[in-house]
Design a binder for these strands. Structure first.
Lengths: 109, 109
DNA sequence: AATATTAATCGTAATATTGCAATGAACAAA
DNA sequence: TTTGTTCATTGCAATATTACGATTAATATT
């Protein structure tokens, strides 16, 4: 059914999955890396940088914005995007808690 | 269309996306968390724990195994799964490098 | 050998994602 | 006001993902 049964998982598990999902496409990884590097970027520049069509970039930006990881500021006819540092930190904590799990004992198999 | 254009991104970006994608479903997050907690687990136990049907769990396990994040050992009629600690560490380094990016300057927008 | 147990695989239905052409909306410049 | 620029939205085609019933494969148990 192409549909995750979210109701059978904890809020934490669903949150981790949501964040991970948005990183699950190389275009969004590239967009975020570029925003970190340049610190702020107009949508059109991203289209040139990444090489996908404008509607496609716009859609990826929408998803990143929806999760709160980036901010967009209208400046005339263009829109300036940048990392939402506070939310990025919060997300990082959630993901680190998941990634940093440690096994206490030796390998089993 | 429904297909990521991986050829236009760096290997690193594609690798990050691949790892993130596998974490992008709460069932796989739950499976991994359970394996960390219990350290080793027979497939049937995961089916009981998670609450999805056996073929579904088996499919999720396959994806985790394919990325090398877990190992599976046949023990009689059952299969014992556990975290592949070495590969988990490698994956963690890749993801941390991405998550730990820092902005040098102030917010722009 | 016959039966039971466990997990993988196959096949399929339902839904989601990706990508872009076409269009629309908002603003700036002439 | 007309034209151009920039970005969002719509609509659609192609592909991927999720879930599970049915079946198969492998090994135990009787």
């Amino acid at each position: 059914m192409g549909l995750a049964k979210t109701e059978m998982f904890t809020d934490q598990q669903n949150e981790i999955a949501l964040f991970a999902k948005v990183f699950g496409h190389p275009a969004r990884v590239a967009i975020l890396q570029h925003l970190f590097k340049i610190n702020a970027c107009v949508c059109g520049d991203l289209v040139n940088q990444i090489g996908l069509a404008q509607p496609t970039i716009s859609q990826h930006l929408k998803e990143l914005k929806h999760l709160g990881l980036i901010k967009g500021n209208v400046e005339g006819t263009s829109v300036c995007y940048c990392i939402h540092t506070e939310n990025w930190s919060k997300m990082k904590n959630v993901m680190l808690q998941f990634l940093d799990q440690d096994i206490q004992n030796t390998d089993c198999c």
